[in-house]
Design a protein around this nucleic acid. Structure first.
Lengths: 372, 372
DNA sequence: TTGTAGGCGTTATCAC
DNA sequence: GTGATAACGCCTACAA
């Protein structure tokens, strides 16, 4: 079939061929060269470029002989659309912008790994911007918008206020913020319900018979931290657990911080063990803002001769690969990365006119550090 | 100055204006709308679109009155080029493709964080592909090539053989492989000199007075692992250290693996301490293929009551943030990420005609785990 | 349903 | 050095 179509035809084929680079008197396409254009496919399939365009972009109902001929021709010429030309004409770039604070940020990395395969099946591509400060993130937003991305997903850097910048573009393209505080009813937002995580954590501990608990909180200059800190106290009260003002402190998300906090927390109360009210002198459980902190805490407890989960139960956050490798394995809060990505893509597909705010609950993965 | 140019001019300005969307009898550009086109700028600056293009793309020597007028007009209209149109005409997309096995791979993440800011200053953008297998990486290569990226950087997945796929495109665009084995003289390659790292590590240990050493090697289905294993033995011999066939094993890059290997390695030899030839029964130092492995080893040694660096010295690989937070801090091999990125961008700028193979030495960062 | 033709915004080429 | 003009490859009214 395809061989017969090489015969020159007086109608569409010849005209199209005349419009190509053939004016330079060379065959426009060498057998497997990289760039065949739509006119070559049209000529080979003996149809017009319009038909080729319609068939290949799926804007044509039937799957008749013509459609098959076009696809065969495209395949034979190893044709793929020129995205630049396509974008120029149709204002759709098949490109999604993603802005993250850093690739070494665990949540961002997980999002990347989940997001990329999904965009690929849509034959879309990810345009990446990295910025850890408000200023850099704003720069990247402008850069990606200037590239005419079809949608923008932003993992807000801690403390960044992007609402003003985003609102300027929210009418043009769909924007989805992941995390972050300020809400705008022009942009979409998908966030993790950390309050729910806190509720799950405290409940899990209460149900396991713990009487007192401490919270090694995160200090990242954001209001969420403070809100979560309050939520901790609310939940502790509601489950009738004990806590102490001095136990609960803000700090970094590092192993070292977990170690030092824990040493301070338990070191003083060691020689009083055996007392009836021991649970009021030192916590029977730790809730940590990050797995690394929990890890440091476990090392410290080990050094102090306290057993996990026997003497102290521990809950981390992030469900990093680390959590599986500790001894015992670490109970941790797993962020709903898959759902976040799915919702973000759905909102982008829905377009800029339908912003929504979605909050997704994480999952508490119970492991050895809170019981056997 | 800019105000005077609003006067209609019979020459260029009027013609250009006629060519724009003004045929619809509306002002084409509202004051701060997103999309002003080159014709608007030309009209406002009272020059031709060709001149605007030349000025803004820097293909014009002088910085005279015309140039300033053009820039002022572009600024006033908030103009930025349409990348699609530019790419269509000039075949330059100002886009670099990056393919990595996973964003959670530490080296890839570090590369991303270093690379993105550098591409941005060139007003280029990163198009990201993720693929952990040979097949997926090949898919992503084809996708990005189809997008007409100006260059391609690939962090080869362990065990992937991309030479055949890459050679097909190596004439069209510059390709830089980071790591990986198979070399092609058509594509560029930037790799880490892990043999040098091994040499540094063994020498560092020898100089600190260690008499025997074990190697917890990486098993990732690649030939590099085997080569490095051989290099370890060569170096051990050349520095007259002792090692034992049973000590050195391939395995995963996890905390758990480091823990178990170390328990096995030292557990049996514990009760023999005090013997003269103790250093032949258990190693006085560990070289680990990864910081996580080293970390597991440290936990195990702690559990066994052996001191670091007193009884055993430890060297990790990767210089992850973790390395700073262990107690004592971990001596580790730092991959030359900055140099890798710089070389990769340089090779891409040089074009497809000048492939090169570059090997960069890492840096041994000495910390507490190998001495005080 | 199919083909024709015009134009998307930019840059390369050519005259001047 | 500048301006007019012709592509770049594709999509999509519109006409057939």
């Amino acid at each position: 079939m395809t061989t017969t179509s090489t015969t020159p035809q007086p109608t569409a084929a010849s005209t199209s061929t005349g419009a190509t680079g053939n004016t330079s008197a060379k065959p426009a396409v060498s057998s497997s060269s990289s760039s065949a254009s739509i006119t070559n496919v049209a000529a080979l399939a003996n149809v017009s470029t319009a038909t080729v365009s319609r068939v290949l972009s799926g804007k044509r109902a039937k799957d008749d002989d013509i459609a098959r001929r076009v696809r065969a021709a495209a395949e034979e010429l190893n044709y793929s659309v020129n995205y630049a030309a396509s974008a120029l004409r149709s204002d759709v770039t098949n490109t999604i912008g993603l802005i993250i604070p850093s690739a070494t940020d665990p949540l961002s990395a997980q999002l990347l790994d989940e997001l990329e395969p999904l965009t690929d099946v849509d034959s879309q591509q990810l345009l990446l911007g990295i910025g850890a400060t408000q200023e850099k993130q704003e720069e990247r937003i402008e850069s990606l918008i200037a590239r005419n991305v079809d949608g923008l997903i932003i993992v807000t850097a801690p403390g960044a206020e992007l609402a003003a910048t985003l609102e300027r573009h929210a009418r043009q393209i769909p924007i989805v913020q992941v995390g972050g505080r300020q809400r705008s009813f022009r942009t979409s937002m998908v966030s993790i319900d950390d309050n729910a995580a806190m509720e799950m954590s405290v409940r899990h501990l209460a149900e396991s018979g713990v009487r007192s608990v401490a919270y090694l909180a995160n200090h990242d200059m954001s209001f969420e931290s403070a809100e979560l800190f309050a939520m901790f106290h609310t939940q502790v009260r509601s489950y009738a657990l004990y806590t102490d003002r001095a136990w609960n402190q803000f700090g970094e998300k590092t192993v070292q911080r977990g170690f030092h906090c824990t040493m301070r927390l338990f070191g003083d109360a060691l020689d009083r063990s055996g007392r009836d009210d021991l649970y009021r002198l030192r916590p029977e459980a730790l809730i940590c803002c990050d797995d690394t902190v929990a890890f440091g805490a476990m090392v410290a407890l080990d050094a102090l001769g306290l057993a996990v989960p026997g003497d102290v139960r521990i809950i981390g956050y992030g469900d990093s690969p680390l959590a599986l490798t500790t001894m015992p394995p670490l109970t941790s809060v797993r962020p709903p990365v898959k759902q976040i990505v799915a919702e973000a893509l759905r909102l982008i597909a829905a377009g800029p006119a339908a912003p929504a705010h979605i909050t997704l609950p994480p999952q508490l993965v119970a492991r050895g550090s809170t019981g056997d």
